[in-house]
Design a protein around this nucleic acid. Structure first.
Length: 675
RNA sequence: GGCGGCGUAGCUCAGUUGGUUAGAGCAUGGGAUUCAUAAGCCCAGGGUCGUUGGUUCGAAUCCAACCGCCGCUACCA
């Protein structure tokens, strides 16, 4: 009896492009969905854009378009990105839809009837200039504790204190820089604590991985607090019924978007939504990242329980993506958008690489560029594709493209590969893709050894039928390996299918063999990665400082510093900026932020200058050597604890790792004046 | 500050309920080959399993302390 399964991935926020960090989740989910389908199960995959909230409203304003126009545009972009990576949703919808409005209002109404909604006054920052309430992130000011300037309204990035926006010294609106005023407003709250028992039961029943359950325990211990689910207008979202200027907080309607997407699909495909969502006939799973655990393990299930809907069977929580061991970074070029990646590289490389690293845990996974290139070329090309390439052409050229029968040795090989099926299925089912890939790779090694031992390139000269038997085994090995890899590599598998001249490749097909069968001409399955492509991709991903879409929460929002008092051209002329070349860079003993740079500032009066620069956390000496920099030449030399510094080099950023040196385009010679 | 996680070969990671000489892939060195996408095969080097102490006949695996790295800290999305 095939299972019926409904799967969702978290809804991407409609305020920025899909990047390779997002893709961890969508690829993990897509691989799992494809796996289920290949097992003969019915599996529906729903997702949508998360379209509401203040940032969307502000982005739309900034772009001079309506929020509706903005989210429609982003929806197209997101969909194109997902298609590009072969992520196959059964429905990719939006939260700004009638279905979502309906469910949001319905759930709110039922929670209200159940007595789980209360009203309470809150004090909040309001910008009279922008005429809107300001979420914490949109109020900035000086940290009340460490006095660091330009900090967010909820916490200080320097001393990591948390506080209220009202605690900030000299608070200002992040959008217009006006000073916000305090306003009292009546908000709706969801009494989360009412559902503590049900939530504990749910989690005890295996609602999430064990490590997630541990984390949740922590929250239970702290106590569940009421959740503010309303926002004052102007706000892009759904109006709360019976209110003039109050809206549902975006996080209320976002997870309900799963239901909206499913409902929309059901209506178009003649399915009964209530049955699908509520009857228990379908298993229901949410794939999410660990950042949004709180919403998916507490708020959302509590809302569902309180309004008579069924929560999911289980959450699958995964970790973040790091690149080369660090957070994705625009300056390093590792903040790679899906659309940028696709311009340079085959999406199946990334599908394979992620699969080879994904487990059922919530640990972060690391994309190491060098490892990515090696692994792709060595495994995907060298082991899998090459196996087909060393059997197909010989068969078509020398043996009429005709498979024969397996001999004893071939039978043994195929049995061995087929025997791994159950374990591989188990690993896919349990989200241990890395284990599955390890197993499959070992089987490919086995098959390659088989070719080596049977030397078809030798026997082909003397014994065609023996050779045919050997290659029949190899082709069958290719077939089984491809079946195992198919959830990960859909396009690759299609090509193999074409080569094998077969209609389907499912797990059930592992039990059969292809004998006395005509195959098609072999076409190359996948190309090696050229490191140049990767470098070009990273180069394009480097932030050039060009205005882009506002950063989402994973990158710091860049806000402008207040302008200094006006100056004249004469004032500027006092400053002598020169092009300089870094001749030598070395760490300064005893200082952890300083590097000593020896600069070539061209012919006299330039010469060589020694500068102490506080950039050691952002640059290594090696990468600086030979670099062209902009140098403030007439700065009064300063005796510092670690030596004399003769001038300074120009850089942007807030300090620490966030420092970006200015450079000049090719052709600028040391000593040239900058004006 | 509080809480959580992690620390195993150059790199990325496996190591099930503690049990024989600690594994894989990639990278490196050597060899024999050439069907194949400079792929594949064979062999080798390389780890005091973060440190210290404890439990045990026996610990990478359990406990404690310490060091280092990372994350979370909910009305941010």
């Amino acid at each position: 009896m095939p299972r019926k399964i409904v799967v969702t991935s978290a809804l991407p926020y409609a305020n920025g492009p899909i990047h390779i960090g997002h893709l961890v989740e969508y690829l993990q989910t897509d691989i799992w969905v494809r796996f289920q389908k290949m097992c003969g199960n019915q599996c529906l995959y729903f997702c949508a854009d998360d379209t509401h909230g203040t940032p969307i409203m502000i982005s739309a304003r900034a772009a001079g378009i309506t929020p509706e126009e903005l989210i429609e545009q982003v929806h197209k972009e997101h969909k194109a990105d997902f298609d590009g990576f072969h992520i196959e949703f059964d429905n990719y919808y939006s939260t700004h839809t009638p279905e979502n409005k309906y469910f949001s209002e319905l759930i709110f109404k039922r929670l209200n009837q159940a007595g789980s909604i209360v009203k309470r006054n809150v004090e909040q920052a309001y910008c009279e200039n922008c005429r809107m309430s300001l979420p914490d992130r949109f109020v900035r000011g000086t940290c009340p504790r460490c006095k660091a300037e330009n900090q967010y309204g909820d916490s200080c990035e320097v001393c990591s204190t948390t506080y209220q926006p009202t605690d900030l010294i000299n608070p200002y609106c992040a959008t217009c820089r006006a000073k916000p005023v305090l306003r009292t407003s009546e908000h709706y709250f969801f009494k989360l604590a009412d559902y503590e028992t049900q939530l504990k039961d749910l989690i005890a029943g295996g609602y999430a991985q064990k490590s997630v359950a541990n984390k949740l325990d922590e929250w239970f211990t702290t106590g569940l607090k009421d959740w503010d689910i309303s926002r004052d207008g102007p706000y892009f979202g759904f109006k709360i019924p019976g209110e003039e200027n109050k809206f549902f907080y975006v996080w209320l309607d976002a997870p309900i978007g799963y239901m909206a997407s499913a409902k929309n699909y059901c209506d178009r495909n003649n399915l009964d939504f209530d049955n699908l969502w509520n009857s228990g006939e379908y298993e229901l799973y949410h794939f999410i990242g660990k950042v949004i655990m709180y919403f998916h393990s507490l708020f959302f299930p509590a809302m569902l329980i309180g309004s008579g809907f069924r929560p999911a069977n289980k959450l699958f929580v995964h970790g973040f993506l790091t690149v080369n061991g660090e957070k994705m970074s625009k300056s390093r070029g590792t903040f790679i958008k899906a659309s940028t990646y696709i311009k340079y590289l085959d999406p199946e490389y990334l599908r394979y690489y992620y699969a080879s690293k994904l487990t059922d845990g919530i640990d972060d996974i690391d994309l190491r560029i060098e490892d990515f290139v090696n692994k792709t070329n060595s495994n995907l090309v060298g082991k899998f594709a090459n196996l087909a390439s060393r059997s197909g052409p010989m068969l078509t050229k020398k043996l009429d493209a005709q498979l024969g029968r397996l001999d004893q040795a071939g039978r043994e090989l195929i049995n061995k590969l087929a025997a791994a099926k159950d374990q591989i299925i188990k690993d896919y089912e349990g989200l241990n893709f890395a284990a599955a890939v390890r197993t499959i790779t070992a089987l490919a090694d086995e098959a390659n050894r088989y070719v080596e031992q049977n030397q078809p390139w030798v026997t082909v000269k003397t014994d065609l039928e023996k050779t045919r038997a050997t290659l029949t085994a190899v082709v069958n090995a290719v077939r089984i390996l491809t079946i195992y890899l198919k959830p990960i590599l859909p396009k690759y598998s299609q090509k193999v299918q074409q080569f094998l001249n077969v209609d389907t490749l499912t797990f059930a097909d592992v039990e059969t063999v292809l004998e006395n069968h005509k195959i098609n001409d072999f076409q190359r399955l996948v190309e090696r990665i050229d490191e140049k492509q990767v470098n070009a991709m990273i180069e394009e991903s480097k932030d050039t400082g060009a205005p882009g879409p506002p950063a989402d929460t994973e990158e710091q929002t860049v806000t402008a510093e207040p302008l200094k008092p006006e100056c004249t051209i004469e004032d500027f002329a006092k400053i002598d900026l020169r092009i300089a070349k870094v001749v030598k860079a070395e760490p300064v003993e005893g200082a952890d932020k300083l590097l000593r740079l020896v600069l070539d500032v061209g012919p006299p009066p330039g010469g060589q200058k020694s500068v102490l620069a506080g950039i050691a956390q952002a640059y290594t000496p090696d990468e600086l050597t030979g670099k062209i920099v902009v140098y403030l030449a007439n700065l009064k030399p300063r005796q510092m604890r670690f030596g004399l510094s003769e001038g300074m080099i120009l850089a942007a950023g807030t300090g620490g790792k966030d420092i970006f040196m200015l450079s000049a385009d090719a052709g600028a010679k040391p000593g040239r004046q900058v004006s």
